[in-house]
Design a binder for these strands. Structure first.
Lengths: 125, 125
DNA sequence: TACGAATATTCTTGTCAAGGAATATTCGCT
DNA sequence: AGCGAATATTCCTTGACAAGAATATTCGTA
């Protein structure tokens, strides 16, 4: 799961996310990215290094050029991780919370709130 | 798409990711998180603030306690974003690149490489 | 009303990461 | 051999941010 952190950190930088989006269309040499982004060549190289360290990107050497390509693995991992959360919006799980909240608004508060507290927000569930 | 950045930034911090994982099991008061994480209460509150600002989390007030709950929206967005990349590992797209790379290893380089350059890594695709 | 529980906020400090500028490296070509 | 193109690396400065410590706020309750 520290792999997940590396992925998030890499993608949290706007320019890097942009690079990833550009590479979605296929492998590209550095110069191509430099022209698309509002960045100078050294920064692009640096960002590519970070992406590479995070395993998000792969280099292929072609003479003086380096062709960078997306590596699917980290994104697959990300999708895998996300799946654990899908029930949050697929099932009506968790919205139970909002429902109870609404109910609470149309009642006197003291006794009922204690019930809710034990039922949902309990500290020792 | 700056929303995506906010999500990534929020999740890029290990403790915050941990909080999110904990909240996956349902809404929880701050104290519960404090006990689970290796963090002091103020830091947890701060991290919750960041998560809240990123829209990843929601508060419900219950007397002195604040019950935090995951908000599905940003994660849904994330999944949506990821879908654009799914073809990277579903189709055999992009692995074309690795294939050509392997071929290259078992041939003389000069003429062939020029062809590859134009075909794949071109600067003006 | 005073107190304690639960949580938030402020201030400070150290660390790390991103951009800028300059330079180094590598390769093809003539 | 030397030059220019393409890319990487280094050094520096600055800003953001996380942790620590201390304090403030809010609420229920005796």
């Amino acid at each position: 799961m520290p792999a997940m952190i590396a992925t998030f950190r890499a993608l949290a930088e706007p320019n890097r996310l942009h690079i990833v989006e550009l590479l979605r269309q296929g492998p590209r040499p550095v110069g191509h990215l430099v022209r698309r982004l509002r960045l100078r060549q050294p920064q692009v190289s640096k960002h590519l290094r970070v992406l590479s360290a995070a395993g998000l990107v792969d280099v292929r050497v072609d003479a003086q050029r380096r062709i960078y390509a997306l590596r699917p693995a980290p994104l697959q991992q990300l999708e895998l991780w996300l799946e654990k959360y899908r029930r949050l919006w697929e099932g009506n799980f968790q919205r139970l919370d909002a429902l109870l909240d609404n109910l609470k608004s149309s009642e006197q508060k003291s006794r009922k709130k204690k019930h809710l507290r034990r039922a949902i927000g309990s500290d020792h569930p």
